[in-house]
Amino acid sequence: MKPKVAIFDFASCEGCELQIVNLEEAIIDVAKLVDIVEFREAMKESSDDYDIAIVEGSIARPIDEERLKKIRAKAKILIALGACAHLGGVQRLGNRFSPDENKKEVYHMARPEDISDGNPYFKEPRHRALDEVVKVDYTIPGCPINRVEFAKVLVALLTGKKPPIPDYPVCVECKKKENTCLYTVGGVCMGPVARGGCDAICPTYGGECEACRGYVSHPHEKAQMDVLAKYGLTAEEIMNRKTMFTSRYTEKKGGE
């Protein structure tokens, strides 16, 4: 019997699900290995009977929380897909402000009663990672996920292997690719504390790593912050680097 896989999404850009489609010809191989029973972005069918739930997106409102708990109850294995599910996503930046402040900024033209907490679609969106709501078995990090890694995780799960998510900094793959270190050309980067596995895609194109895959399990955070300060960043600029994808680690309440 092929394992049944269901793919769900919450608040997200659905770019990670798109990476599954972006496996291109290999998606046909995937379809041979597992029965995809629900994948709203790509198929009409849905099912309540699945072994593996792959969930993209952050959990924002009470109605989302309820839906996730139902998914968890049905799934044997629950996988958090991408930075939104893993860390809360860039939208977690909105948690800096109160729900009312956010809504005022975005929906300033609305009648207040239409967007009040009485309307469940608008009730206090606070973005959180999946594991802040339910137990998560495995995480495929990244914004977006690395599709090659997605395939490897699937193979690992089907063969009884621990999913091979690296626990070394981005610097490792960056150095192996013989990139010029941004710090040596006047830039800064979160690579030394950020979890690798992305093949250092951003620094390879000259962009700084923003730690979209979260931090390694034992980040040398103090040393990293000292380095950013040494390279001339103000406290505010350092905070910007720390909060792009990883505000989960710095949020006072509800973070790790």
């Binding site: 063969t159 270190c181 040393a223 990293q224 380095v227």
Partner: peptide, 25 residues
């Protein structure tokens, strides 16, 4: 120290290696 491994990765006399298996789809 950031523990990033750069000093070993760029070194001409660091020879340590890891071995991994990759199974296809």
């Amino acid at each position: 120290c950031l523990g990033c491994g750069t000093c070993t990765l760029v070194c001409p006399t660091c020879f340590c290696y890891d071995i991994q298996d990759d199974l296809n789809l």
